[in-house]
Amino acid sequence: MEKASAGMWRKIDSRYNLVGSMCERCGTKYFPQRAICRNCGKDTKMLHRKMSGRGTVYSHSEIRVPAEAFKESAPYTVGIIELEEGPKVEGHIIDNGKKVEIGTKVKTAFRKMYTDGEEGLIHYHFKFIPE
């Protein structure tokens, strides 16, 4: 049976390893990757940069009513993480028994995000975990 897989494959480095962009001129780092720097516009080059994955919780929420692909795993916590490199990114925050609040220090972990049904692809992704 034909199933689409190019979409997840294309961004695999960002999904696994938090690879974002850095503007060659002003040094600003971005996640997700972007082609044009917000500060410098088009007259610069955007380089790939892996983020450390370490950061602090900027905001968080426990999702109780999930989207279809996440119905098995609800409730789960999501948040905005302010990475030590500067960019803020959204992600899952794994429950490891530690309290999650604004300012909580986190690092990344490698987990399954969702699967395309019983026979489809498994989507692996970074998640955040309180340190």
């Binding site: 098995e72 795993s73 899952h92 794994i94 972990a109 490698f110 987990r111 399954k112 995000m113 498994i122 692996y124 998640k127």
Partner: peptide
């Protein structure tokens, strides 16, 4: 394992 862990995620964490 948690619901979001499998032999691949465990292998990645161990390898890292």
């Amino acid at each position: 394992p948690s619901m979001d862990e499998d032999a691949a995620t465990i292998a990645v964490e161990a390898a890292r």
